[in-house]
Amino acid sequence: MTRQLAPWLAGALLLAAVPALVESPFAIHVCILVLMWTALGAAWNLLGGFAGQVSFGHASLFGVGAYTTIILYLRAGVAPWWGMPAGGLAAALVSLPVGLLCFRLRGPYFSLATLAVSELVKLVALNWESVTNGPVGYLITALPPLRLFGHAVDWESKTPFYVVAAALALAALAATALLRRARLGAYLVAIREDEEAAEAVGIDTVRAKVLTLALSAFVAGTAGGFYAFYFRYVDPDAVLGLSLSMEMVFIAVVGGLGTVGGPLVGAVFLTTVGEAVRERFPSGHLVFYGLFMMLVIRFLPEGIWGRARRLATGLQERALRHGAA
């Protein structure tokens, strides 16, 4: 038990130390992005990595969360830190009918259906002006005051957002680790391996997939809420674009499908290498993501994290053998 908890404690301590060690607001900003992407990659990985259900539409779940958070704040005065989980819930609710519809389809047909649904969501956001403000979207000019431990939180500093993003990423990774050990996690692996064989041994495959999608949607929607909170700006292109969906796939694949730590590695990769490419080729970055993913799938199918883990276990075993000899 302690051996399992140790890496988590170390990770949490390291995360907690960052704001004290890092001065530059830009560096903290990069850390915040990495953590947000970690949560999003983990959300996608729950469904795509464990259950093998490749979604190209996760941006819509992120977007629903972002819109929910910002609309609740600007129209009803609900503070964004309450709006974030509300955004997660909204995304989970939206995901239920979508899942029941799309999970009737298998393999590439499922993926295409998620793509269609997310384009539909974007169209709704563009055209349902009374609720979404159409293409203009929403802008937060001032965040509500908040006092914690007797101090007023400074919304101009990046530190409070860093703390929220770190909590979000840790929660998403912990949810992944828990799912992996739970019966549902085992069911998802069965579904990924052979869906008919899974049904034959009594696994309700539709229910398992719908539940997992809802969990995945909750994480993605909460991350969307965080986006609205941090960037204070939401419009259809920013939170519902296809590239967002692709970036989530990219993170999970590069980091390692169905692994716990993979999304963190993938997120670091995306925010560094991915960003650099994006700056140089503003319109071509999706092509780069596609090519790079193909290379990873061909030469490193277990992802960076998966490969590193296997190497580490191999070394450990060799060390043990040498120690015993």
Binding site: A186, Y187, V189, A190, E193, E196, A197, A198, V201, I203
Partner: peptide, 14 residues
């Protein structure tokens, strides 16, 4: 129709 990537024991435990 086994679950090919899992061990025999994992297959049956599922």
């Amino acid at each position: 129709k086994p679950f090919p990537g899992l061990t025999v024991k994992e297959n049956v435990a599922l």
